[in-house]
């Protein structure tokens, strides 16, 4: 089930397919090559020249995706476990350094108590881990009403303070 950053349950044309080197689980039947979210390795190997969606694992260097960004519609960032925080930096770099305007999707071990942090780092959509409760996800998504620091979607609180 895919959750949007507006707290809506949405359907996507794009999905991760089980390949040899793909993510465990979550696969669906491939319908059209252009709608598959391919692994970063296959993208780099140029075996998927027409792919418009890619998923990156935590040790894939997001800088290496830069040349492909103009044609990518979806970048999914995998969380192999909920306590591996590298995906947050990848998302922030995609947004702030490369101004990537496509969809950034959280996949893997995505837990409801961390959605807010993902939202703040520029994720648009969340494919929740098994066993996560969607109603809870919607309730927890927005998190705290403001942020002390500059985040992908907010100015730091000190700007708000000086405007008061």
């Amino acid at each position: 089930m895919l959750l949007s950053n507006d707290g809506e349950i949405i359907k996507s044309e794009f999905y991760v397919v089980n390949e040899d080197d793909a993510l465990p689980g979550r696969g669906q039947e491939a319908q059209s090559v252009s709608k598959r979210i391919v692994s970063f390795k296959t993208l780099l190997n140029a075996t998927e020249v027409s792919a418009t969606a890619v998923w990156l694992d935590v040790d894939d260097k997001v800088e290496a995706a830069a040349p492909y960004l103009p044609r990518l519609e979806v970048i999914a960032l995998n969380f192999p476990t909920f306590n591996d925080g590298r995906g947050y930096s990848s998302a922030n770099i995609l947004r702030s350094r490369y101004a990537f305007a496509g969809e950034i999707r959280a996949i893997g071990d995505v837990r409801v108590d961390q959605l807010e942090q993902m939202l703040r780092c520029g994720f648009d959509t969340f494919e929740l881990a098994d066993g996560q409760v969607i109603e809870l996800a919607i309730r927890l998504l927005k998190g705290f009403p403001f942020s002390y620091q500059k985040t992908s979607d907010r100015m730091p609180l000190f700007h708000q303070r000086s405007a008061d």
Binding site: F82, N83, D84, G85, Y88, S89, N92, Q114, E116, Q117, M118, L119, R120, C121, F144, S147, Y148, Q149, T151, P156, L157
Partner: peptide, 13 residues
């Protein structure tokens, strides 16, 4: 302290 509190990128170092 304020900058580091709930910094969304650095909660899972």
């Amino acid at each position: 302290r304020q900058w580091s509190t709930f910094h969304p990128e650095f909660n899972w170092l």
